[in-house]
Each structure stands twice: as structure tokens, then as C-alpha cells.
Design a protein around this nucleic acid. Structure first.
Length: 273
DNA sequence: TTAGCCCTGAGA
DNA sequence: TCTCAGGGCTAA
């Protein structure tokens, strides 16, 4: 569930706390989370300084001294937060990253274990081995690029928005919210939508993402901030999770359909093909 | 393009 | 005990 706004929020919160710190000790208890061997990570991280932290697609990337980079993907239920030794190490805590001269460290906790930690060498923006590069996100894309990318694809608009090789950053929640904002039906085919409507969708996506970042993301089940607080944007969802509720615009009942194996919430009256 | 898989907790 | 939630990968 952590999508672009949630990862961006985390990056902004973790950056001022962690940049400049030097890793001291690393504890890994769940091998499936780690896409780099635990012994290598335990050996490589201590002594390295965190230089920058940024978001790339739905990944949180730490650029370290000595041309080493640490990539986090939170999957569905992943949490990365700043806590001291008093925080209970329950069975869902899979990694603890500690720093020199700091009583607090970073805890990686993930109930469903869809999250992953990767390591890469060289430039911070070069993708880790074994990860097929993700596409640009809608905040990076120009309006012209956005329209061109969608127009040359077959398939339904919602499925394309969820496909991280088409564009990255959107997940089920923000795809539904953006399509509602643009009044576009999730089963629409982009090739059949006018340039004007695609342009409208482009600006709707950016508006929804930026508003969600301002609200610190959405906390539905597990997503929390680096300090343990929750995001607020779930209170502003207009269609996601609102099946049978009245549309805030026209009063029609919000419907739910299955698309790409995911629930899609939309207003059958407002959202047109 | 779609189905199934990974995974766990919540709710029926 | 069964079903559902879904990010991203793989196989058909």
C-alpha cells in the first residue's frame, strides 16, 4: 500500500535525522526480505556514512559513502521508522540498522513480508542488480511524455497506471482517486481518450499525489511515518474503499469492480469512457 | 493479458 | 475455516 506519497513522506522525515550518520551495527532476522546476502550487508554497512536519501519510484534509496547504496521497498505492509532500544522487537521486525553516537536507529518491520532491501554499487540512481528499472513517475514526466506513453499502449487505463514499467509511483489507491478526479472510467482505453482528457488526467494525478504528500500519505492498515504517527489522506479519499457510499459529487453509489486482480472503486455516473 | 503466487491478519 | 486485502514477479 505504500505508494509514491507515502515513500516521499518517509524520505522527507528520515532525511534530516539520518543524513550524516555513520552505520555501526546491522541486524537481519528475515532472509527473504533481504535481496543482498546478510553477511555481505553486515560486513559492508558499518562505518559507512549516509550521504543522501531520496525516493525513486516507490523505493527509498540511501546513498552511502564509498559508492554503496541501500534500497528499501516497503511492499504492502512495510514500515521503516526511527526508534530507540526500548521498541519491542516483535516477530515482524526483520532488520535493525544502528548508527554511531545515536541511541536511536531505523527499524524495518513488515507483517506480510512483501518488502525488500537491496544493495547496489556505483551511482545512486543506478538500479540494483536483479531489479528491472522502473519507469519515471508522474511528477517527473512532462505532460507531452505522459500522453505519448499512454497513447502507444493497448490495455485499460487503470491497468496501465498500475504498471510500474509504464509509469511508477501509483498504486491502487491513488490510481482510483486520480481517475475519479479526472472523471475517467477505469476501463477506458487511452487510445480512445482525447488529448484534452489525457492532459486532464495528467494534472489530476499530480494534484492527488501532491495533496496526499501534504497530508503525509494514507494510513489504511499499516503505513506509519518515520516517527510512528499516521498519515491523514485516508480521510480525503473520494472513491477508494467507499463501495455503496454516495458519490461526493452526484450522489450515485460508488461501485467496485475487479481489474488486474485488484479492486477498483469508481462513480458509474461521473466517470466516463 | 491474465491467473497465481508470495504472506499474514482481520473479519465473516 | 474460508475469504479478502494487494505490489510485483513469473508462467501460461
Amino acid at each position: 500500500m505504500p505508494e509514491l506519497p507515502e515513500i516521499e513522506t518517509l524520505a522527507r522525515q528520515i532525511r534530516p535525522r539520518v543524513c550524516g550518520l555513520v552505520f555501526s551495527q546491522v541486524t537481519m532476522t528475515e532472509p527473504t526480505i533481504l535481496k543482498t546476502s546478510a553477511p555481505i550487508l553486515k560486513k559492508e554497512l558499518p562505518g559507512r556514512k549516509v550521504q543522501t536519501i531520496f525516493r525513486q519510484a516507490k523505493f527509498l534509496v540511501f546513498e552511502l559513502s564509498g559508492k554503496l547504496n541501500l534500497w528499501f521497498h516497503l511492499g504492502m505492509t512495510g514500515q521503516l521508522f526511527w526508534a530507540g532500544p526500548e521498541f519491542p522487537r516483535d516477530k515482524h521486525v526483520h532488520a535493525v540498522l544502528e548508527f554511531e553516537n545515536s541511541p536511536q536507529g531505523l527499524i524495518f518491520r513488515d507483517i506480510r513480508k512483501f518488502g525488500k532491501i537491496f544493495m547496489s554499487n556505483g551511482r545512486a540512481d543506478s538500479w540494483p542488480e536483479g531489479v528491472k528499472p522502473f519507469a519515471k513517475d508522474p511528477l517527473e514526466l512532462s505532460r507531452e511524455n505522459f500522453i505519448e506513453i499512454l497513447r502507444r499502449r493497448a490495455g485499460k487505463i487503470k491497468s496501465l497506471l498500475l504498471n510500474q514499467r509504464v509509469m511508477s509511483g501509483l498504486g491502487n489507491i491513488y490510481a482510483d482517486e486520480s481517475l475519479f478526479e479526472a472523471r475517467v472510467h477505469p476501463r477506458s482505453k487511452p487510445a480512445r481518450l482525447s488529448a484534452k482528457r489525457l492532459e486532464n488526467l495528467y494534472f489530476s494525478i499530480r494534484k492527488v499525489l501532491e495533496l496526499a504528500i501534504q497530508h503525509g500519505g494514507s494510513s489504511i492498515d499499516d503505513y506509519i511515518h518515520a516517527d510512528g504517527r499516521r498519515g491523514d489522506f485516508q480521510n480525503h479519499h473520494k472513491v477508494y474503499g467507499r463501495e455503496e457510499d454516495p458519490c461526493i459529487d452526484c450522489g450515485a453509489r460508488i461501485r467496485r469492480i475487479r481489474l488486474s486482480g485488484r479492486s477498483s472503486f469508481f462513480c458509474p455516473h461521473c466517470q466516463k469512457f
